[in-house]
């Protein structure tokens, strides 16, 4: 079963038509995922597995990876060596209010650590797609490369 809507394999122009666009494809096609004036997300953000809507366009701000809230994200698969995602994403999307999400799941605070909560897809439970660092109560972060974009 093909679970991921893979829009295009070769033609970058086709990547912007219908369906959802991965971070890699968008980057390759020079799609502006970041709105240049506001630094917000130009497009709706969806789960890369089940297409559940995570964030509407314009509600999250680009957060560089080298900021104080940065935290390595564990592999998104059980076997880290097969993970296609880097531990440190290129950048993140940040919202300051958990109710800014359309659909999202929060894990329990990871015990023994710094009480970080990881974020998952609310519909298919895939994750982590981001995290909520306990030391920055108003930061809810989504890894830009672990979600897909409704490029229209």
């Amino acid at each position: 079963m093909d679970m991921i809507t893979d829009i295009s394999t070769a033609n970058p122009a086709a990547a912007a038509v219908g369906g959802l666009t991965s971070y890699a494809k968008a980057t390759k096609a020079a799609v502006q995922l970041v709105q240049p004036q506001t630094l917000t997300n130009s497009y709706d953000i969806h789960c890369s597995m089940c297409r559940s809507l995570v964030l509407k366009r314009g509600v999250a701000k680009k957060q560089p990876s080298d900021s104080a809230v940065q935290l390595p994200l564990p592999a998104a698969t059980q076997d880290p060596s097969t993970s296609t995602y880097p531990l440190v994403p290129g950048y993140l999307w940040v919202v300051n209010d958990m109710m800014a999400f359309e659909n999202v799941g929060f894990t329990k605070a990871v015990p023994g650590g710094d009480d970080t909560r990881y974020l998952s897809c609310a519909d298919c439970d895939i994750g982590p797609i981001g995290y909520h660092p306990a030391r920055v109560p108003k930061a809810f972060l989504i890894a830009a490369d672990r979600v897909r974009y409704n490029v229209v």
Partner: peptide, 21 residues
């Protein structure tokens, strides 16, 4: 969920989900 595309056993929940929006 209105439209689950995955079977539950295809999804590995390594850390329990506490709540959902």
């Amino acid at each position: 969920t209105d439209d689950t595309w995955l079977q539950p056993d295809e999804v590995s929940a390594t850390i329990g989900v506490d709540f959902k929006v």
